[in-house]
Design a protein around this nucleic acid. Sequence first.
DNA 1: TTATAAAATGCAAACGATTGCGCAACATTG
DNA 2: CAATGTTGCGCAATCGTTTGCATTTTATAA
Lengths: 343, 343
Amino acid sequence: MAIKTKVTIHDIAEKLNITASTVSRALNDNPRISEVTKKAVVKAAKDLNYQPNNIAAALRNGKSHIIGVIVPTADRSFFASVVRGIEEIANNLNYKVIICQSYDNYEKEVQTVDALLSARVDGIIASLGKNTENFDHFKKVQEKGVPLILFDRTSDAIEVSQIAIDDYLGAYKVVEHLIQQGCRRIAHFTSPKKVSIFRERLRGYAEALRDYGIPYDEELVVSSNLQLEDGRKSMEQLLQLKEMPDAVFSSSDYGAMGAMQVLKENNISIPQQVALAGFSNEPFTSFTDPPLTTIDQLSITMGTVTAELFFDQLKSEDRMKQPQKIVLKPQLIIRKSTLRKEE
Amino acid sequence: MAIKTKVTIHDIAEKLNITASTVSRALNDNPRISEVTKKAVVKAAKDLNYQPNNIAAALRNGKSHIIGVIVPTADRSFFASVVRGIEEIANNLNYKVIICQSYDNYEKEVQTVDALLSARVDGIIASLGKNTENFDHFKKVQEKGVPLILFDRTSDAIEVSQIAIDDYLGAYKVVEHLIQQGCRRIAHFTSPKKVSIFRERLRGYAEALRDYGIPYDEELVVSSNLQLEDGRKSMEQLLQLKEMPDAVFSSSDYGAMGAMQVLKENNISIPQQVALAGFSNEPFTSFTDPPLTTIDQLSITMGTVTAELFFDQLKSEDRMKQPQKIVLKPQLIIRKSTLRKEE
DNA sequence: TTATAAAATGCAAACGATTGCGCAACATTG
DNA sequence: CAATGTTGCGCAATCGTTTGCATTTTATAA
């Protein structure tokens, strides 16, 4: 019943008494083929229910039209959005996207890169695992002439185009905003991790204070893993101080959320007594009470910009041109958790 | 400088004075090859920096070891989690995952299916677009002998294995819980959409009421798109009633969130005066004040179960066996928004 | 030592599309 | 009318692996 035989361009050729070459050219709209032939081929292809075999084409011309994307995990809001953006652009350009998760596991990242290379992807877009310090696997990618680009979690230890957001600026904006709202004792939740993003945010915090003539007070800077529970503990710790802070800027929204819970439990009003800000614009931040001021990382934009830069390099003739570094300006999202003054 | 020449099994063969066949078999651990040869081949492969070409292999044996996943959009929490689960299982089995977004656009869905077929994926896992009513594109997949499986947004209009959650049961559980908390006038936010999930939830709502001897009151059932704004409007509408409801069960967490805002603005206490429950366990629901009771859809589980069933069918000899339908039992997540009684 | 089985490897044809080159057939130009 | 150009298409090699069917080598038995 079912016509199991795979139909190829040869079948089309046979039916029309021409050769496979002509069919191939006709299907690819090659100008060397007459219009009549093209129409006949297209019609025959439809009649025979022809399905092109990309694999054969890929083998022949060395282009798979597939790109690999490596993220630590696909279900974190930020990465999911980036993936969305990348897929959107890629799809418009007729590329397909293979998605891979490293789970912040270095070995897995290495294996994944290797697997993508074997799959002959036309390029790789990756966000580094937290523990990645050796870049031989990515250098191998470049040596093989496969376009590579890093986003968000990038590194200067490898010469490669990259897209990141300006963490320093984001933090600076938050703190500046808090100061403008009248806060003077601004605490900060940071992380001891070696990841540069937290260092950058800390730097932004410190510089903003300095620029506005507010002394940097070590006891206001608390280090933790920045999860909800950490935020709670950090906040409780701050409440022990002789002089309570009048604002808390957490390097993560989760940490801020923990602080919010503790503040509410202690009947400390937000933002009047303590203003509160996070970082990342996690989806939940607009639904807290009060809604949380935070920094948006433009995740979809990062996806599209990354993809655009990537395909730019893919098309560009001299593949080996200087790696580009793009830094996105994050956006301050002001919500009630920091709005002390009615405008 | 860079050794540009792609190294193939022929290069390995040449170096060892054997043939490509032997190299191929050695690399695939074929028992017909002696151990010494295997070791030599593996070593030579490493020395030459050999990278297998999956495309050539795929062409030869008709298996790409890639599966296609189609979701409406990759950045919705639920789908992102499912994708995560699928990728995890697939990766363990040495399969790669191509991700595609339909954006609930029927034409795009059709094109995507076609593209995946041309890419010669070994199977397709999809969640239907909202407007998909014609299934010819999916039937074509089956006719070509490509394994297909649907999850979450499924349909009975096509004979295919599918995984979904029991929306009826989820709704029933919520309403039952509300009743046990002492609620008697329970309102429901539903959607006019043809999508079956909302009908099923409405059914669960109605049946629970009936089972507990509570009359079904039409004025308590409000229909909308279930977004935040819709939730607000619906709630305001309910507040106009002579007799206010003592509970609201929204078919979406966003709708519930809108209701929560309106209730708070009107100084109506949650859950004492009005208990509130949503559906989906969106990430934000645990961060609202009060935290929102909702139904968890086991997204990661759905991903892994879907992937497992899929690979089950992929391996199974008689591919054409009866399509299986798996229904996941959703889980009631009780939070403060409905907890009237201290336990 | 010869016949026979078992083990290890080689040969060559796929898989399906692409493309450089060549060759007709026909049109154009001087 | 010869020379040249243009158009439309065919030939055959190629991409890198895999695999059925030899063929060779080695081990075992008679």
